[in-house]
Nucleic acid binder design. Structure first.
Length: 478
RNA sequence: GCGAGAGUAGCUCAGUGGUAGAGCUCCACGUUGCCAACGUGGUUGUCGAGGGUUCGAAUCCCUUCUCUCGCUCCA
């Protein structure tokens, strides 16, 4: 795969997602709602598979440190609604909203608190709003946190927020985890869950939505070691994304400039992906932030609680520094959809060779037909194995196929299909990315072998039913 | 929130004031001994929603919602 190949337009992927049940627009029958998406039968399976892979790579089988020993990370699932003081301490209540002023005449927007710093776009010699034809709106709040009210009575006292990031739930429980789980520095707390941001402009399918899912891990370490761990997690996170089957040239690191750093952050590097809507530039997939001691210091002050750490060996007291790899799970789904989508030319009968990637903009050559195949890594594919009787009007084939299906479904997410010609059934599975097809024919009844058909090569091999599960187990782990 | 474009079947789209359409998909039956085969039949729409003009609106007007792009924003 070369870097310069034409990327599939996002619309094509959106259509496939709808058509095959990956992702639907939320509340579609009521006209939809801007910035919200529903994950269909295949979408939720794909999302869960990514989620579980992250959890396994972070919590259950965390990476090895420089001594070859696993680092220590524990899991957490904190509530979405928290004491609103948490968001004051975190800086989100004060800093997450900026009053903005629009000029109706020149279609420009200014931060109300910095109005005097802007020049009028049409008359640069004057300040914004100072020109006689300027037509400014009242300052408007752009608070990116969703508000709600806890309890039956709506009042300022009952006001609360849907979390705009999962991270704060981790900081709020940092002391609980220290006090109850015998962890020692350095260690991490990982969490996967929904977060909500009232984005001004939801865009690009699920890339920027108002309700999304994050996979975040806060790594607590000694300040002197923070740079080392920043490098460590940078490497590990890139390694993980590549392990999902994302092409190397589609992922880059991008260091944040000093002026784009968040209020809490000392340094930040993004893992970026070559999305079809950002190409030739890359767009954010994960942020790895050096949060310093900002959060624990803030919560320590606001909650009047000692959140510093005493080293059990040296008795040194300090506030740990935090390295935060924060990924978008739902962005991960989008990346894998973009990455997996492939149009191919497949030789017809009598033409030599296997499938090859279609050249964008060119029509299918003579002797070939086209197919769409989602090339998910087998372990992430929503459906692992499809089981078919070669013919549906032969009861003995159907019965045997049902038997094989019932066996395999105990190990993997399987799909049974007897409708239509066998070729059509293979292609249907290609379009949802099912890595393997198992077909039962008359030979199966005679010698207990089946056809195992490979999604990517379209090659078929005969395999004994006794060995089928073993074969699949090996291949589906990749 | 501003500006521009768009919204018709599950998907892609045609239809400029006079009976709601095509291709693909999907379903059933038949056929079919391994790659979107074929035959026959069939399902699917408040033409995004609401209001107006008109004898009559998918079509013209207004409002609104949603999508796309550009601003703005993006912790």
């Amino acid at each position: 795969m070369s870097n310069d190949r034409q990327l599939t337009p996002l619309d094509t992927i959106v259509s496939l997602c709808k058509r095959r049940g990956f992702i639907y627009q939320s509340s579609e029958i009521y006209g939809g709602i801007n910035g919200f998406w529903d994950y269909g039968p295949l979408g939720v399976q794909l999302k869960n598979n990514i989620r579980d892979d992250w959890w396994r790579s972070m919590v259950e089988c965390a990476p090895l440190d420089e001594n070859g020993e696993p680092v220590h990370i524990v899991g957490l699932d904190s509530s979405i609604i928290q004491n609103p003081r948490a968001w004051v301490a975190s800086g989100h209540v004060g800093g997450f909203s900026d009053p903005m002023i629009d000029c109706r005449a020149c279609k420009a927007r200014f931060r109300a608190d910095h109005l005097e710093e802007y020049d009028c776009p049409r008359k640069p010699s004057k300040k914004a709003g100072a020109h006689e034809s300027c037509d400014l709106t009242e300052p408007r709040e752009f608070n990116l946190m969703f508000e709600t009210f806890v309890g039956a009575v709506k009042s300022d006292e009952s006001r609360a927020y849907l979390r705009p990031e999962t991270a704060q739930g981790i900081f709020l429980n940092y002391k609980n985890v220290l006090d109850t789980t015998r962890v020692k520095l350095p260690f991490g707390i990982a969490q996967i869950g929904k977060a909500f941001r009232n984005e001004v402009t939801p865009r690009n399918f699920v890339f920027r939505s108002r309700e999304f899912e994050q996979m975040e891990m806060e790594w607590f370490c000694h300040p002197d070691e923070s740079e080392k761990w920043m490098d460590f997690w940078k490497r590990e996170r890139m390694r993980w994304w590549r392990s999902l089957g994302i092409r190397e040239e589609h992922l880059i690191f991008r260091d944040h400039e000093a002026d784009e750093l968040a209020h809490y952050s000392k340094a930040c590097v993004d893992v970026e992906y070559l999305y079809p809507f950002t190409a030739p530039k890359y767009g954010e997939l994960e942020g790895i932030a050096h949060r310093g001691c900002f959060d624990l210091t803030q919560h320590g002050t606001h909650a009047e609680m000692k959140l510093d750490y005493t080293d059990p060996v040296t008795n040194e007291r300090f506030v740990p520094n935090v390295i935060e790899p924060a990924s978008g799970l739902t962005r991960g789904v989008l990346v894998l959809l973009c990455e997996a989508y492939t149009e191919e030319w497949v030789p017809k009968e009598g033409v030599e060779g296997g499938p090859r990637e279609a050249v964008s903009g060119e029509s299918t050559p003579e002797g070939y037909e086209s197919r769409v195949v989602m090339k998910f890594a087998p372990r992430l594919a929503p459906v692992k194995v499809a089981v078919f009787p070669l013919l549906k009007n032969k009861p003995e084939l159907v019965a045997k196929a049902r038997e094989v299906f019932k066996e395999l479904r105990q190990h993997w997410h399987c799909f049974y299909d007897q409708t239509g010609a066998i070729g059509r059934r293979y292609r249907r599975q290609d379009e949802i990315g099912t890595p393997y097809g198992v077909t039962i024919d008359f030979d199966t009844l005679a010698d207990n072998t089946v056809t195992l058909r490979d999604r990517d090569t379209m090659k078929q091999e005969r395999i004994s039913l006794d060995e089928l599960s073993g074969h699949l187990a090996g291949r589906l782990a990749s």
